[in-house]
Amino acid sequence: MASGLDCDSLTKVYSGSKGRRALDGVSFNLPSKGVFSLIGMNGAGKTTLVRILATQLQPTAGRASIDGLDVMKDAKKLRDRIACVPQEARTAPFMTAKQTVLSYLLWRGVGYREASTKAVEALSMVGLQNQVNELNRKLSGGTRRKVLVATVLSSDADIIFLDEPTTGLDPISRRELWKLLTNLARDRFLILTTHYLEEAEELANAIGILHRGKLVGLGTLDQLRASVRYQYSLMLSPGQEPPPVREGEVTTGGAGQTQILTNETEAQEISKSLLEKGTRFSLSRVSLDDIFFHIVHGGSEEDSQP
């Protein structure tokens, strides 16, 4: 039996979608620990995959299991171990932050008194110790999001699904949540989707790239980097003369800045000549943004050819 997170030809065709595959033969295997981050464009299939793994949605074909527990056949055992905040989950406006977390723990079968204590603890963990008894409808949108994250943090589930948990959070709160999630991932398995690629870069032990229902990339940041053509990025500020480039891609952004994507040897040579000329520039390894653009954009160009 497959260990870790295992998907085998996982396919989803929603009824009434004229045969369109929201997931199209997704197969992969990963250790079930740390943070697994799913990225992809709107409609790529992230939520669909998360919902199937969290036993909320039936796949059309294929199999999926976590630690040997099949999402269909062993749903009951799996449900003892999972917790999920869906992408469109909202807090009930008529409940307080504490009531929200408390009732979630009751759903999980935790006793009232313990649930009450744990609810306050979890809310403090996400920085809401002063809003414990505030009605959700009086909280700001991002704060409500934190209440939802607190619900799963409060549970003892060791497999946690978070579908876009940091959407709507301010930059400081987002970073605080990252810290929390990193700590949490020490002894649990987190599956999270995000549109903030620096978030995946920062948190993920493994990154999966979905595109039009297909898994087009999977691995650590370094592995994904190795899979693309150019691993280095040189940035020249606006107005700087771009140097001659023998191998690589040169693009000029809207604000006039120039980016050069290239390989290691070429990056060294260009840097040397730029330094000699006194041109201001920065050199870094390609970011997940660059990798994502390369994999997904490259893919869609091929797709669009007749």
Partner: peptide, 22 residues
């Protein structure tokens, strides 16, 4: 309302709870 507007059913499905208790 709970299911569509709050996604409560999805949250409860992904938990040790059962439809009968719900």
């Amino acid at each position: 309302h709970f299911k569509n507007d709050f996604k409560l059913q999805d949250m409860v499905v992904s938990s040790p709870s059962s439809p009968v208790a719900y």
